[in-house]
Write a protein that binds this DNA or RNA. Structure first.
Length: 257
DNA sequence: ATGACTCCCAGTGGGAGA
């Protein structure tokens, strides 16, 4: 079973690239972030033609998430239950026995901003809810755009980025607290190329210079960890014309005996 | 260098992203 996450930065702009990618990478499920589409405009038919059913949770202009799956996705949840949020950032459902949570964690803008306060509050609510979900669904994947670079090795220039948004001690502590729930960063279960990033700024020729951050993650529960067979970042779509600034991250799970 | 690019809604500019 293969799962993926990708911040597409506008699904209407990126739909052809997504369809191409799914044709080349026929994952069983994928969560998308920054669809920037109301549900009325979601391209259900095009994705169905590619073999995917869609759960969407969008809004105009900003945010918006979706969960695409080949098989039925049951028990859907939109946003964090009990956490009042005007922004569409979470979609979850169960696919082939795996609880799949797709999250677009707030950017936070700057450590001295109101948006940073919101980011930390949001992460508190996420952690409490994921803990509940783990009780109900031991086989769980929490994946998406975390907007957190967990360690210095996830940052192309850790000295310049230290204390900046994505790299503050507070954000990194939140990431560690998620791991403290028994979740595991699947990417780090494997040897990876040095300087592995999932996001590169559009500016400054950052992709060509490989100046990026690893901020898109796939965390897996204890129960799923023995099934993790591979996890990688696919840089190829970042080489497209008019690419998203993020690359997809892919997880492979061994099938149950 | 308070930059750079890309998206969106707007409306011939500005906010947000990261």
């Amino acid at each position: 079973m293969k799962l993926a996450t990708w911040n597409v930065n506008s699904l209407s702009v990126r739909l052809p690239q997504l369809l191409d990618w799914l044709a080349a990478n026929p994952v069983d499920a994928i969560v998308l972030q920054e669809t920037k589409l109301t549900d009325a405009k979601f391209p259900h038919a095009e994705l169905a033609a590619a073999g995917y059913r869609s759960l969407c949770f969008g809004q105009k202009t900003y945010n918006g998430v979706a969960l695409l799956s080949r098989d039925e996705a049951t028990e859907p949840v939109r946003n964090i239950p009990g956490f009042d949020d005007e922004q569409a950032r979470v979609i979850a459902a169960t696919v082939r026995g795996v609880r799949v949570i797709g999250a677009y964690i707030p950017n936070g803008q700057a450590p001295d901003s109101d948006k940073f306060v919101y980011k930390l509050r949001w992460l508190d609510a996420l952690r409490a809810w994921v803990q509940d979900e783990l009780g109900r669904h031991p086989a769980l994947v929490l994946m998406g755009d975390y907007n957190i670079a967990p360690e210095d090795r996830d940052v192309h220039d850790p000295v310049a980025w230290f204390g900046q948004i994505h790299c503050t001690p507070e954000e990194r502590a939140h990431f560690q607290q998620l791991l403290g729930l028994g979740l595991c960063d699947a990417f780090r279960l494997f040897e990876q190329p040095p300087k592995s990033w999932s996001w590169w700024d559009y500016r400054n020729l950052a992709f060509r210079r490989n100046q990026g951050l690893r901020i898109d993650h796939i965390l897996v529960s204890e129960a799923l960890k023995p099934r993790v067979a591979a996890c990688s970042i696919d840089k190829l779509p970042r080489k497209n014309e008019r690419p998203s600034d993020h690359a997809p991250v892919v997880l492979e799970l061994a099938d149950l005996p």
